[in-house]
Nucleic acid binder design. Structure first.
Length: 406
RNA sequence: GGGAGAGUUCCCGAGUGGCCAAAGGGGGCAGACUGUAAAUCUGUUGCUUUCAGCUUCGAUGGUUCGAAUCCAUCCUCUCCCA
């Protein structure tokens, strides 16, 4: 066990870049540091990428430091162009507001905001009422366009086009840091590695305006062994909101990560002691499945709580190991299913997005009902298919779904 | 503001009057193989009441028996000049 978080973060491979490695380590070792991470309200739920940031906050908090979770109710009006190839869609104030509320709830489930142990702020409080001319004179004068243009985060956008609106994003985020350093004595900004340029901007600004030395540090982006961003499925992001991605699906996502990514994810996303992880690192082949199950359990527990994690684990075991049925597997209730065609039922259970897809699935031998292959697209659901546990549909090899009549 | 070009199905990208629901690749889905892997191979990939019909190629109108392809206007973006 280390007594400096910095060593913990480093050992787990979380740290990507630091502005002043030695100074930051020293600072974190000797005092309670107030630091911040920003979350822009780009959707109505956080996803696993954000979760990584939340884990870091928890690590820091565990060592007595004070996190500021900044919700980007103001920066959401601009949209961060960092590393993106296209412009974000502009959001209405109502949507931004709503998304911020959603974020707040999710953030407080992982980070302890009681007794001022962490602070939640919204940059709408100081960004929305800014006066353009004043801001330009006061803050804009501190930024060099020449320098900004060379920043890595704009590279892609300089090829595809970047509007003035988005170009300003860096100033907004930098201003956030300045505000937080003034209001709360915030000394450190953290973020994903794609935030590096924005963080540097803030540090420069604090020095120029207040002659205040502050620091920055970025974290490994959650990428898989192929270098692609993790947390994406065909259906979209792996959201933390159980209404968007059920705890069972969430659990399944982690059980199915690539072999080469398990250890990395264990280090980055869980609080399992390094000794244990190093033990798992020796595992190979089929043994890795146990590590995947551990990963899935731990992450699900952090996000959805112990009860849901247990449930997800139980369902997975019952469904896959025993090939059977589970009382808590994904279920759709279709009262009038009897007499309907399979295609309609598949569609209603959202297992397919169109009847054409359902038809294809059956033609390609990818569908079973109660373990019997369905080969006829015109198959009609009958009452005798429903046992005590309802009717079990298996789509492909991994997707089990239960249909109930009530 | 002037000039040149671009906008195609989930993404990239062919297609310049009928043979186009639209090549190819990526991704997705399914099958074989397996460890609820990976890699590989195979099939599939707009919707529907599927031997047929319907909607799609930035938007809206127009020419034509017939348009993703031609014309007009508009929108968005890129590049060069200012």
């Amino acid at each position: 066990m280390h007594n400096n978080v910095f060593d913990v973060l480093k050992e787990r491979g979380l740290i990507a870049q630091t502005t002043h490695e030695d100074e930051i380590r020293e600072l974190l070792g000797k005092e309670k540091v107030t630091f911040y991470i920003g979350f822009d309200p780009t959707a109505d739920s956080l996803h696993v990428g954000h979760f990584l940031q939340m884990v870091v906050m928890r690590h820091m908090q565990n060592y007595g430091h004070r996190p500021i979770a900044l919700v980007g109710g103001g920066t959401g009006y601009i949209g961060d162009p960092s590393g993106r190839t296209d412009m974000r869609q502009m959001m209405t104030p109502e949507i931004i507001q709503h998304n911020c509320e959603c974020f707040k709830k999710q953030l407080s489930s992982v980070i302890d905001f009681s007794d001022d142990k962490a602070i939640m702020v919204n940059n709408a409080d100081w960004l929305l009422d800014l006066n353009y001319i004043e801001f330009l004179r006061d803050i804009g004068s501190c930024f060099s366009v020449n320098q900004m243009l060379t920043a890595e985060c704009f590279k892609q956008r300089l090829e595809k086009g970047l509007s003035f609106l988005e170009f300003n994003y860096m100033l907004m985020q930098s201003y956030d840091f300045l505000m937080l350093s003034r209001k709360y004595g915030c000394k450190l900004e953290l973020g994903g590695d794609d935030q590096w340029s924005n963080i540097l901007g803030g540090i420069d600004l604090c020095r120029r305006k207040d002659r205040n030395q502050v620091y920055g540090m970025t974290f490994t982006l959650l990428t898989n062994s192929e270098g692609k961003k993790m947390g994406k499925t065909a259906k979209g992001a792996v959201w933390l909101d159980p209404k968007k991605v059920s705890p069972y699906e969430f659990y399944q996502y982690w059980v199915n990560v690539h072999d080469d990514d398990v250890i990395k994810c264990l280090k980055l996303l869980t609080f399992i002691p390094m000794d244990e992880i190093r033990e798992m690192e020796k595992w190979d082949g089929q043994e890795l499945n146990a590590a995947k199950r551990r990963l899935a359990y731990e992450v699900t527990k952090l996000v959805h709580g112990e009860e849901e994690a247990e449930k997800a684990k139980r369902v997975s075991e019952e469904v896959f190991a025993k090939g059977g049925v589970s009382a808590e597997m994904p279920t759709t209730v279709i009262p009038d299913a009897v007499g309907k065609g399979v295609l309609d039922v598949l569609l209603e259970a959202k297992l397919v997005s169109s009847k054409g897809e359902a038809r294809r699935l059956i033609q390609q031998n990818g569908l079973s009902i109660n373990d019997n292959k369905v080969t006829d697209p015109a198959f009609v659901i009958t009452e005798d298919l429903f046992g005590d546990d309802g009717m079990i549909i298996k789509k492909g090899k991994k997707i089990y779904h239960r249909i109930l009549l009530k």
